[in-house]
Every structure is written in structure tokens, then in C-alpha cells.
Computed example of a mutant assay.
Amino acid sequence: MKLGLQMGYWGSKAPSGALELVKEAEALGYDSVWTAEAYGSDALTPLAWWGSHTSKIKLGTAIMQLSARTPTAAAMAAITLDYLSDGRFIMGVGASGPQVVEGWYGAPYPKPLARTKEYVEIVRSVLRREGPVSYDGVFYQLPYGGGEGLGKALKSTVHPLRGDLPIFLAAEGPKNVSLAAQIADGWFPFWFSPKSNDFYSLALQDGFKARGEAYDSSKFEVICPMPIVINDDIEKAADAIRPMIALYIGGMGAKAKNFHADVFVRMGYEAECARIQDLFLAGAKGEAMASIPMTMIEDVALIGPKDKIRHDLERWKETVITTVVTGGDIDSLRTLVELIL
């Protein structure tokens, strides 16, 4: 099991000490560093900056939102960053959700699976550079069929450093997870629980079957964000996780369509999710956080004293996860190396 550093997306301003944290992670043997984007900072620019100050650590986006860039623009960014980092870039993409796509990007949110498949096919075509890129899909057409009528199929002027640059997909539902195994090189779960491992393992096997292969974990990465809070007081450790769970279940998606809540519902927390959503959407965020039971937190996070975390970690090592991604300060990074590596 490898370690990754989750830098996420920015809050109200750029975080302080980020570069020092990334450099320390590389020195400690972390395999990768990951950024994200929502509707503030973008996922690519920080990686370019940190990549210019490091030499070994892999640079990944978790995730680039499909609606933020056309497939060819995403491929251009990937080619550029891969060159600048000497082949360390990992292109993580995902469909995001309708609230962000329709509210922030002003774009529709139709059939995310089919749209993702088309998107990745075009990116792969650009990276392979076997000829001018043309594509006649439901969501993407190259060249564009309307407009001036002068569109021409084009081939990247830059020869990609790697035609097989790795592409990972963010996915939470079983069909999305299967799609990741079918068309991508890795999968980002979110709010993963070891007790759901069999469910996801079957979805991954279905995806590999669709590409005519048996599932092989050595050929497929599972990069799992995992909250880890080291504290001798378990309740205080749990309280550090509750705001994030409440936000994602209660506010990161509409009540009728919230992919994060669906993950917890599949774990058996349907009633808890309904209560969290009701309280959060009513403005009672403190009550929403307080209503999250300890079992729910321990299903998706490692919390408590070092010895407890070391013990609880064993069940995670028996899952499909290949890399644990977590954040923290420099002291936390060092402790996690001791516990995991």
C-alpha cells in the first residue's frame, strides 16, 4: 500500500506552507500528490508549481472536472504538464455533479457515463497521435459540424511524452466504477469502506470483463482518499471528521441526487443520511454534525491513538486499495509513514 498526499482545492485563499508540505512528502517517500477543483482554485496550476520544485513525486489531479475543459483542452494540459514534470503527471477526471456543472459551468449534465466514455476516448486519441482527431459522438463532435463549416480534423503539434499517459476516473456508483475499470488506468473512490470491498471488487471485475480481461490489481490503481486523525481522544478525533461528512452528505448535491449520500446509504445508513440532509439543508449544521454516529465515521476513516489506527488499518490492507491518500501537517505526514509505510 502506497501513500499519497491530498492537497485538495483551496478554501477562501491559497493555503500557506503547501510547497514545504509537498517537498517533505517527497522526501519521506510519498508516491504521489493530488489536487482537486470545485468552483474556486483549479487542479492544474498548483501541480505545475509544485512539480517545478520536486523531482520524483507523481503529480495527479483528483479531479479535473469534465465540464471545465473540452477533451482536447484537457489533453493539451496533460501533454504540457507531463513534459514539464518529466513524465510524472496522472490525469484524474470526473463528471462532478449537476449542481456544479449546471450552476458553475452553465452546461447540461446529461448521461455522465456515456459522456465520460466519449471524453476519455478523445483524450486517448490525442495522446496516441496516430492521426488527425475526428470524433462523431453524441456529446462531442470533432470537427464541429456547424458554425462556419470550416472545421478541420487536427493532430497535436506536440508529440506527447507518453502516449499511454495514465488516466484515472472518479466514480462512486457501481456502473461508474465498472466504467473506470473498463476504460481507465485507475479509480478514485470516495468515502470508501472496507465493508463495501466485495461490492466494489465485483464492479471492477465487471469492468475488466467488458475489456476482455480478468481483473488484475497489478495493472489497475485504486487511489483512495482516507481521512486520518491521530488523537488519544477518539471523540475529538471523530469531531474532526464530522464537518466533512455532514457537508458532503448534506450540502454537496441536491437532496434528490447526492452521489456522496448514496455511498453511505449503500453502507446501511439510509436513515442517518436522511436526517443529516434534513438538518443541514435547514441550516442546522451543528445538529447535522452531531447526528453522525461513531460507527459511520469509523467505516470511512481512521481515528484515534496510533495503536488503534495501526490495528484498524489492517482491514484496509485487505481491500482493492493500492494507495491511501490523506492530508495533514508535516508531523502527521511523518507519523503516517511510520504507520503505513
Score class of each variant (00 low, 15 high):
Gly207Leu: 01
Ile234Tyr: 12
Glu121Tyr: 07
Glu213Asp: 12
Leu127Gln: 07
Phe192Leu: 13
Glu235Ile: 14
Glu221Cys: 02
Gln141Phe: 04
Ala184Pro: 00
Phe188Ile: 02
Ser193Asn: 12
Leu127Ala: 08
Val222Asn: 01
Glu213Leu: 15
Leu204Pro: 01
Val123Thr: 05
Glu221His: 11
Ala203Asn: 02
Glu130Pro: 13
Glu213Gly: 10
Gly149Ser: 08
Pro160Gln: 07
Leu179Ala: 04
Pro227Asp: 11
Ala170Gly: 12
Met226Lys: 13
Ala184Trp: 00
Ser218Gln: 12
Tyr200Asn: 09
Asp136Arg: 15
Glu118Val: 01
Leu169Arg: 02
Gly163Lys: 14
Glu172Asn: 14
Ser217Val: 13
Pro189Gln: 09
Val177Ile: 13
Pro225Tyr: 07
Gly131Trp: 11
Arg129Pro: 09
Pro143Leu: 00
Phe168Arg: 00
Lys152Ala: 01
Ala180His: 03
Gly173Met: 09
Tyr119Ile: 00
Gly137Phe: 04
Asp206Tyr: 02
Ala170Cys: 10
Gly207Ser: 05
Pro132Ile: 06
Lys219Pro: 01
Tyr119Gly: 00
Ile223Asp: 07
Phe192Met: 11
Gln205Leu: 01
Phe139Trp: 06
Gly186Trp: 00
Arg128Ser: 15
Gln205Arg: 13
Phe190Leu: 14
Glu148Asp: 13
Gly146Val: 05
Phe220Glu: 05
Ile183Ala: 06
Tyr140Val: 07
Ala171Asp: 03
Leu165Met: 11
Lys236Arg: 14
Ala210Ile: 01
Gly147Tyr: 04
Leu165Asn: 06
Ala171Leu: 08
Gln205Tyr: 02
